[in-house]
Simulated assay, not measured.
Amino acid sequence: MSRSLHPLFHEIATAPTEEVLRFRVMDNISHYFGIQRWGISLIDSANNLVSFDARGVSDSFAERYQKFGIPVDPVLKFVLNYHAPAHEELVLPKGTWKQSELYQRCCSTYDHEHIMTGPVLGQGQLIGTINFARVGHGPAFNQFDLSRFGAVCTHFSTRLAELRKHSVADSNPYWQSLTPRERQIANLVAQGLTNPEIGAALWISRNTVKQALKRMFRKLEVSSRMEMVLKLRDGLDK
């Protein structure tokens, strides 16, 4: 029976920084999927590579794949189009993998017999990929591998988004000036809730909400809810 992914999910969920998140996945993922080579690539909004972590992958392969592999990679194309994980047997007709341009140009030279790629998503966009390869005579990836891999990609993407949001919020001095309760209230104000609705959501009185907003207005030096939301936009829940 396959190993439970829950220990890995816990490692992902408790990662305190983006760097630690990447390292935890890189250090542990092979134990769950029987892979010999793997990596994580992250890009910015202009599609520039901002980080690349890999195990068992040579610099020469990375360079060759960037130059010759990406334009002809059917698995990556599927991930780009559908924001879902895929392996070669999912996207190519049965028995044609070794005749594909990607295999001929890149994978055969470096003994990548089977590959699987999954999306890293942020704000509805593809911001990276997680990449697996099995070498030698290992089995191809199957539907069960794909489902489990999809769960890892979801957990990784969620935690990465949380860490990046907190990083942006931490740079906003107005957000930092608020207490945890005031931040809760600010998020509900941004959602358009009234004072009675905020009170009901947080189990506090309407007057408590009113007094909290007065304090928040003074701290932030604003006179309206709209001004407050604009000053706090970097920290508010999206």
Rank of each mutant, 00 (worst) to 15 (best):
R3C: 08
R3G: 07
L8E: 00
F9C: 03
F9M: 10
T17W: 03
T17C: 02
E19D: 09
L21K: 05
M26D: 03
M26A: 08
S30G: 12
G34I: 00
W38V: 08
S41A: 08
S41N: 10
N47Q: 09
V50S: 02
S51I: 02
R55T: 12
G56H: 05
V57N: 03
S60A: 12
E63K: 14
E63S: 15
R64E: 13
R64S: 15
G69V: 06
G69L: 01
I70C: 07
P71T: 01
V75N: 01
V75Q: 01
L76I: 09
L76T: 02
K77W: 05
L80E: 15
L80W: 11
P85N: 06
L90G: 01
V91M: 02
W97F: 05
W97V: 00
W97K: 03
K98P: 10
K98A: 14
S100L: 06
S108R: 13
E113F: 04
I115L: 13
M116H: 00
I130V: 11
I130S: 02
I130K: 01
N131V: 06
V135F: 04
A140N: 13
F141S: 04
S147F: 15
R148M: 03
G150M: 07
V152H: 03
H155T: 11
F156W: 03
S157P: 00
T158W: 02
A161S: 14
A161R: 09
R164P: 09
H166K: 15
S167K: 15
S171P: 02
R181K: 08
E182D: 11
A186G: 06
L188M: 07
V189H: 00
A190K: 10
Q191K: 15
I198C: 01
I198M: 06
I198E: 03
A200L: 12
I204H: 05
V209Q: 04
V209R: 07
K210P: 04
Q211P: 00
F217W: 11
R218H: 11
L220M: 09
E221C: 10
V222M: 09
S223G: 14
R225C: 14
V229T: 11
G235W: 00
G235D: 11
G235A: 07
D237E: 14
D237L: 15
K238Q: 10
K238H: 11
